[in-house]
Amino acid sequence: MIEFVLGESDLVDVRFAVSPLSELTLSLRVLKEPAKYPLHLSWLRRMGDVDTEVLLALSTGRGWTPDFLSPRPSTPLARFEDEFAAVSELPARTVRRDFRALFGEVPAVLTDRRRVLAALETYWHVALEPRWDRMRAVLEADIAHRGREMAQHGLGTMLSGISDRITFAPPVVGVRIVGADPRRVDAGGHGLTLVPSVFARRTAVPVDPGAPSLLIYAARGAGVVWETGRVRGPRALAGVLGQVRADLLAELAEPSSSTGIARRTGVTVSAVNQHLRALRDAGLLASQRHGRSVVYARTELGDALVSHSVERGSAAPSPSFART
């Protein structure tokens, strides 16, 4: 069990952040053992030309990776360029320390720092950057959901909803990591950073016991991040709201940004925003700003309206996704 001990100041400094570099790092597990990640196989099949020798060497058989590739985000919505620049400027001794902590003896292919950095940068541009807007929308929607859970039900309920491997017995957050040595980490006034991930299957923490308190977890909605298409609203609901708004209400079974919805449904962003505001003003949706995005989610009234429309005999909102 990994235990994060939160002092009074830490308990009010539990924060969420999105880290593109952490997503890149966690995606290396998919490259190494694709059979364990069937949800991401369509993405993997579209992979361009990358330095797989280096990329595969960066993770262990357990899927663990060096800490410097999963830094604690300094801002809620970090940019890859900023995170990568910080990694590029790390002292060589820090990189060697993290490699040795993970591997013992550093693999020969990882001793050429310029090749490692080039492999990571190319991999980002080829494999992740073209899909990053969609990934970020899923991650931001997850954060909006967790924030609402914490505000309404408290920190303990929010943490337990992330994973059954997480416990909270104030002031200790416990995380069960298979194969990791037990340790107790004092947050020391630096708070706890929670980072959702499309590629995480469960939870992940830093390898270094002295690293800042950081917990990476599997984001809600990650299973549909590579899918395109639209969800059809129940016919009875469409008769009242119109098909477009019924579809949007059905689409929001999971929180999402207007940009993400527009991309999935093929409706323009401006039109989506107009319809979403109308649904929000009617009490069927709630909205929350997160960084540059506004994330929408169905209210209890919206959930009830969709469910009741299905129960009245219309077709259930079923996905008509076309995998890309």
Rank of each mutant, 00 (worst) to 15 (best):
A187P: 10
T157K: 13
A322T: 13
R62Y: 03
L284D: 08
R264N: 13
E81Y: 01
L21C: 02
S258Q: 08
R220K: 13
I166W: 09
L276A: 09
A211I: 03
L39I: 03
A78T: 06
M158K: 09
A17I: 02
D181F: 01
F103E: 04
V173R: 09
D208T: 04
T52I: 13
L77G: 00
S88G: 11
L194H: 10
M150I: 10
G302Q: 05
L55M: 07
A262D: 08
P34V: 02
D49A: 11
A137F: 01
G229V: 08
A180V: 02
G239Q: 12
L276S: 09
G189M: 11
F80T: 01
A57K: 09
I166V: 15
D281T: 10
G313A: 04
I162Q: 07
F321H: 14
F16H: 15
H290W: 13
S70H: 01
R136Q: 13
S314M: 06
A180R: 11
T265N: 08
A250M: 01
E140L: 15
E254F: 15
W43T: 07
L77R: 04
V224K: 11
E83R: 01
I216T: 15
R312N: 03
P206A: 06
E311A: 14
R165A: 13
G188K: 10
A297N: 02
E300G: 04
A238W: 04
R184S: 11
R201K: 14
A253V: 15
A78V: 04
G179Q: 01
A315M: 00
L55P: 10
L41N: 06
A278T: 12
V272Q: 05
V306S: 09
R220A: 12
Y217K: 12
V240P: 00
V231P: 03
R45F: 02
E23R: 01
V116A: 10
R96D: 12
R136D: 01
E83G: 02
V244S: 09
P255E: 04
L120E: 03
P196N: 06
G189H: 10
R72L: 10
L24C: 03
L39P: 03
V12F: 13
R148W: 11
S9A: 15
L241N: 06
A119Y: 09
G313V: 09
A127H: 00
S307P: 00
V294Q: 05
S22H: 07
A200I: 03
P170Y: 05
W132H: 01
P234M: 01
P196I: 07
